[in-house]
Design a protein around this nucleic acid. Structure first.
Lengths: 189, 189
DNA sequence: GAAGATTGAGATCTCAATCTTG
DNA sequence: CAAGATTGAGATCTCAATCTTC
């Protein structure tokens, strides 16, 4: 690793980089690295895009989670379960189906549904066809809770996301996001 | 809450929704809700966009984290610290500066830097100017570790993200992501 | 034996409280 | 007393092991 060691910042152990040697290991290639690169480094536009996107991907879930929690007392994973159930014909889903919606592992889903059951928003019943299975069913209170939370969430999605994407090619963007997320199965599953 | 209660799926307690009444509380408005809506619901294109984006925002960090961990043994938060340090003139930053980069809370940063220090990738030294402060400095081993991890990470970013965004308006997209992430300060800080 | 679901153990992260210094 | 940083407590989530049923 051919690196110039230089300026001590305080008055101590080997700092690693000279003031003028700036490295961009997340997005760009080190400016003064010697060895030939196999992977093409990012150009300036790509670097700016990825920096913005990396920040967005971290910030957005936090912003929405905080708002959702403050406004409704629900966690995103809980909201997602209620929502997915509400979209099913009988407001019912197997635990494994729920987990396969992609937001949670199997054991994580067990615990979320357990919380929701304790809160009376969901009921767990044995599956008729397969005695191994459990079916989660949305209760009236669960649906009411979802309906009450929905306007806040919709407002957040509009204000924080969609308003900023106005003017872009929505269909192309949708397709691109789909490829980023779906190309490979999620880590667990 | 004017909702038709219908079909029992198994043979049990009140399921909440009729098979034909599908609700979309994450992205669209319930199809058959009565009361006038204040917030405009999402149209079909917006709904598809948000569904894809919500999935992407969840999946992408997991994909990159899994790859990074398998390839290098580093967590994303650890990689971020090494990277941010490497980009500073003397490879040194105050704990609070590090935390303000947006990825972690103050206490979270304390713990990440503690891990990195134990691993010999970072050193913690007292701040000259302000005896309350701590300065984290990248070590040679830390820089070497970052340099070794970088190609894998770059490859992942290219393959999983940038390749799929080719053809879109990069500058507009960068600006949009910036607005989504930066508009308001992050939850903590 | 494999699949559906749950439980135990371990990791990471945030919030609130604490300690130290300006 | 405010700010920088750390520590204690609590929450959520994943992985691996377990239990039940096909």
């Amino acid at each position: 690793v051919p690196l110039s060691l230089l300026a001590q910042t305080q008055n101590l152990p080997a700092p690693a980089l000279a003031p003028s040697n700036r490295y961009y290991f997340l997005v760009g290639i080190a400016l003064e690295t010697g060895p030939a690169e196999v992977i093409p480094p990012l150009d300036a536009e790509e670097e700016a895009l990825w920096r913005a996107m990396a920040r967005m991907v971290i910030a957005l879930p936090r912003i929405l989670e905080t708002e959702l929690r403050d406004a409704t007392g629900l966690m995103p994973s809980e909201y997602a379960v209620l929502m997915h159930l509400s979209e099913q014909p009988h407001a019912a889903m197997r635990m494994s189906e729920l987990a396969q919606m992609g937001t949670l592992s199997g054991s994580g889903m067990t615990r979320v549904v357990e919380r929701l059951t304790r809160a009376g928003l969901v009921e767990r019943i044995k599956c008729d066809e397969d005695a191994r299975g459990q079916v989660a069913v949305l209760t009236d209170r669960g649906l009411a809770r979802l309906a009450a939370a929905y306007p806040d969430h919709l407002l957040g999605v509009r204000r924080h996301v969609l308003d900023h994407l106005a003017g872009l090619d929505i269909k192309a963007l949708t397709e691109a996001f789909g490829k980023i997320a779906c190309e490979e199965p999620l880590p667990f599953s």
